[in-house]
Amino acid sequence: MSHGATDPTMHPEVQLSTSKGYFLGFAISIALMLLATALVTSHSVPPFGLLMVITVCAGIAVIAQIYFLLHIDISEHNIWNTVALVLFIPLFLITIGLTWWMFSQLYLRTMDMSVMSSVTNPAVHAPATPKLSDMSGMNKNPDSGN
């Protein structure tokens, strides 16, 4: 404890952080974000391709930030960062997974699915709504009182 306090900047996990790394991480993130924004605003790629491109951009940005800004690797002195990442995985699966599930179920019941598919297949005129009985999870027998 007391007076012999060591210089915190000499800790190995702090030594990993370099201004070059931070600037690089920042620059990569900004560049990818600008690229994605430019593609979205200019509509220069068809919708499905656009979705793919910005997803890839986001993926690269995540990796760049994990590496350059958060310094997450599997070395011994970075164990706390790694633990934090491991804790993040179940939360990521829970939040994104359950959200996806609940909204897919919601859309089955509330949305015109032909419109929803317009991302992949931009139809201007929506075809007729699918029959209720075609939806999964729907009560097939209207007389059951459910």
């Binding site: 829970i94 359950l98 599930w101 609940m102 179920q105 919601l106 089955l108 019941r109 509330t110 999870g137």
Partner: peptide, 16 residues
């Protein structure tokens, strides 16, 4: 794991 119970009436259906 429980946040949807604040909006059960959203209509996500019986399974959710």
């Amino acid at each position: 794991l429980v946040w949807l119970h604040h909006f059960f009436t959203m209509g996500a259906g019986p399974f959710v």
